[in-house]
């Protein structure tokens, strides 16, 4: 019922379905994320727009179980992971991955690229049936991953500081997709890149979504990027979803006043 209300277009079960998610920080007057509900279909890119501090990243961290939500459920492939911990959460970790805003912070500066890339597979991917990145040998696997994000194989032996910002973000994308998750949370993946790299990374992400059948929750303050990438868009303000619409209806008259405000800024 909820699913139909939230997303009336599709009949298949959503890969990710969030209901009533609320997160309040200790000492804060109001929740950082308040009663957020949405469903994400397989192969879909759902945009989430809002200005800095509106709770977008808190939502992402709750979905990744980096932070615990106070209330609400996170159904990932039909299983509520909001209350799971430790060994019971572990099998579900493979289904959801994240790409952070700042690739410099997201890569260990002391590890070679290959050593960073292999982590998810070593921990979560073994035993999983990988169709695109089938593991034959470590070298071959790393090479396939770098190939998928259009990076030369010789970068495997380099350190993050030897790569450009755009290359580093491609590496973190490769790490996120290497175990073929159902959902990738993209938390402002292009915010720290220059304009040319931004476009290239967005194109890459869009191509990977189609070829690997990934679903994205694309979080950004950049309405133009969200509009370009997403089929549906949610607008967040003060921890709440204030507007949601199909990307084609962005400029429709019935948009929420705050959405119109965001459009006018761009």
């Amino acid at each position: 019922m909820i699913r139909q209300l939230l997303h009336p277009f599709s009949s298949a079960a959503p890969v990710l379905s969030v209901d009533g998610l609320t997160r309040t920080y200790a000492g804060a007057e109001r929740p950082a994320v308040q009663n957020v509900s949405f469903a994400l279909d397989r192969g879909e890119c759902l945009g989430l727009v809002g200005e800095s501090g509106c709770g977008k990243s808190t939502l992402a961290r709750c979905l990744m179980r980096i932070e615990d939500a106070d209330r609400g459920s996170i159904l990932l492939g039909g299983q509520d992971i909001a209350r799971l911990n430790g060994r019971r959460l572990r099998p579900h970790r493979r289904k959801i991955q994240i790409v952070f805003q700042n690739p410099t912070a997201a890569l260990n500066p002391k590890l070679r690229i290959a050593d960073s890339l292999i982590d998810p597979y070593q921990q979560l991917g073994q035993g999983a049936k990988l169709t695109h990145f089938a593991y034959t040998s470590r070298d071959a696997y790393i090479r396939r991953l770098l190939e998928a994000v259009e990076l030369p194989a010789e970068l495997a032996g380099r350190y993050p500081h030897e790569l450009s910002g755009g290359q580093r973000q491609r590496v973190t994308i490769a790490r996120a997709i290497g175990i073929e998750p159902d959902v990738v949370v993209l938390d402002e993946p292009t915010a720290s890149l220059d304009v040319i790299s931004q476009g290239a990374v967005l194109d890459l992400l869009d191509g990977l979504r189609t070829s690997l059948g990934l679903s994205y929750l694309f979080i950004s303050h950049d309405l133009a990027a969200v509009h370009r990438m997403s089929q549906r868009v949610m607008v967040m303000r003060g921890g709440e979803i204030v507007d949601r619409f199909s990307a084609n209806d962005l400029f429709a008259e019935k948009r929420h006043p705050y959405t119109k405000e965001l459009i006018s800024i761009f």
Partner: peptide, 22 residues
């Protein structure tokens, strides 16, 4: 506190492994 440790945790690395590898 950095993101790469957060990611290592979400990728299921044990505390001991995070300490030794990262």
């Amino acid at each position: 506190q950095k993101d790469y440790i957060r990611i290592a945790r979400t990728n299921g690395l044990s505390d001991a492994r995070i300490m030794t590898k990262h």
